[in-house]
Design a protein around this nucleic acid. Structure first.
Length: 456
RNA sequence: GUGGUUGUAGCUCAGCUGGUUAGAGCGCUGGUUUGUGGUACCAGAAGUCGCCGGUUCGAACCCGGUCUUCCACCCCA
């Protein structure tokens, strides 16, 4: 055999069984999206580079896959930049397009571009692959699907409430129990920075704080010190590390810490609104938890921040996230367009469902009945029945070749097909079919109508 | 992007300090069984030992590079 072909790092092939299971997740999520009034859109796999570049920070820019210009792309390159091997400069000259990195920024572009056709508030969902030139790990790929739902054009906190309910509805429908919906608010993080007089170091502060569950209190303090946050400031903020208890208890603690911050207090109010609403309408399976250390990387969030943690027994990073961004479309020139959205990490949800054995048997589409092929005349007799079964919405097929019986039975068995029909000369004379149940091994002589009844 | 790790038959993996024709289980193909699968028994096919180069009389094994896997960081779904 020749050298086996391979696929690029961080990409995957999907077998029929895997595709079926993935489709099960897609359709479950889609169904819930639609129930909540979201409409689907799709955007191109690649965008103009300037649509994407600079929207995700320096780190994000590095992870964006750039598409090489076609034609003699070196012609346009600046000799000076080429001589000094200035990759960044050359990149902008040889690449004008890039693969999308997420669905949120393309959505913002969509909203701005189609603002005159869109009826606001606009609720859209989008399920498409995204690409990141990241180093793969478990649950981290270079090509993966995101399932996003966003609303733009409304400041109402009812949107946040609905998104929490949407998360709950999806995970309930998937039978995934023990999911924690972590919520925080950017205004609270700003409040912290304000209270300690380090507002200009908000990003460094939140990035460090976000690592609490990973590196512990000491690690966070150490990182904050390294970023130049004063020991005094850190001491002031220390109470946030000991915020425990239920949602309301944490809120009380926050009120004390943020008493001096107007923005912080606004954040608390927003959280309380959401919490009260959800107290009146309890979630089915998910658990809502206030996590003041939740920051998430994207700096365009301005209000609520969401992150979904898989059940504790599964070792998996977050399986979803989202938040409120007051000015997402501002980067494309459309001001005062508040939006909020959430995202589901399909590939990770798949891994979690697989690990917990939560895929229903029905997730795997399969042929229900296969006819044994005994030869030319018999095959025609069989195909007539197959045709009728298909009109009755039964997935039916005939083995295409008059191969040995054993081979055909084996094929049915390997493909896990529930019923096999044997129809030879004897059956043809009686206008009957021998229907065999492959699970029990039982078989009986039936008419076509009886067969349809048994199978469906 | 940094550091580490992995790669042997379709799959899961053995292969001792470098030494003849590289093994096992499962799977696959055929047969026992010409209208009956899953079990059993018998037989058989299948590997440029990830790839390229180096050291050596000799490399799956040692060295370098590269790709891939997984992990930690970074970041993140």
């Amino acid at each position: 055999m020749a050298q086996k072909p391979t696929i690029p790092k961080g990409t995957r092939d999907f077998s029929p069984a895997e595709v079926s299971k993935r489709n099960y997740i897609f359709s479950t999520i889609k169904h819930q999206f639609q129930k909540f009034g979201f409409q689907p859109i799709e955007t191109p796999s690649f965008e103009n580079s300037d649509t994407l570049m600079g929207k995700y920070g320096e780190e994000g820019d590095r992870l964006i896959f750039k598409i090489l210009n076609s034609g003699d792309f070196l012609k346009k390159v600046d000799d000076h930049a080429f001589a000094e091997k200035n990759s960044q400069k050359i990149t902008t000259q040889i690449s004008e397009k890039a693969l999308r990195y997420d669905l949120t920024v393309p959505f913002a572009r969509y909203v701005v571009q189609h603002q005159n056709e869109i009826e606001f508030p606009f609720k859209r969902y989008q399920i498409q692959p995204v690409w990141r030139a990241d180093r793969p790990q478990k649950g981290r790929f270079r090509e993966f699907y995101q399932c996003d739902a966003d609303v733009v054009g409304s400041d109402s906190l009812w949107q946040e409430v609905e998104f929490v309910q949407l998360y709950d509805a999806v995970f309930t429908a998937l039978g995934l129990e023990g999911v924690t919906l972590k919520i925080n608010n950017r205004k609270i993080l700003s409040g912290f920075a304000e209270v300690i007089g380090e507002s200009d170091k908000l990003i460094d502060f939140t990035v460090a704080l976000d690592k609490l569950d990973k590196i512990g209190e000491e690690g966070v303090i150490k990182e904050m010190q390294e970023k130049g946050i004063s020991a005094e400031a850190i001491k002031t903020i220390q109470p946030i590390f000991s915020l425990t208890g239920d949602f309301s208890t944490k809120i009380q603690g926050l009120k004390e810490i943020l008493a001096e911050s107007e923005e912080g207090k606004k954040g608390i109010e927003e959280l309380q609104f959401i919490q009260r609403a959800l107290e009146a309408m309890p979630l089915e399976t998910a658990k809502l938890d206030l996590d003041v250390t939740l920051a998430r990387g994207l700096n365009y969030y301005t209000g609520a921040i969401f992150e979904v943690a898989a059940p504790e027994k599964v070792k998996m990073g977050s399986i979803g996230g989202g938040g409120r961004y007051d000015d997402l479309t501002g980067i494309f020139g459309l001001k005062n367009m508040s939006g909020v959205g959430i995202s589901f990490g399909l590939d990770r949800i798949y891994l979690v469902l697989e690990e917990l054995g939560l895929f229903p048997a029905s997730a795997e589409a399969n042929t229900q009945v296969i006819f044994i092929n005994f030869g030319e005349k018999e095959a025609l007799y069989a195909m007539k029945a197959v045709k009728e079964l298909r009109t009755q919405h039964i997935a039916a097929e005939m083995y295409p070749d008059a191969a040995k019986m054993k081979k055909q039975m084996n094929h049915a068995n390997k493909r896990n097909i529930s019923f096999v029909v044997l129809a030879g000369t004897k059956e043809m004379e009686e206008e009957k079919y021998t229907l065999k149940n492959m699970k029990t091994g039982e078989q009986s002589s039936v008419s076509l109508q009886e067969m349809i009844k048994t199978i469906s």
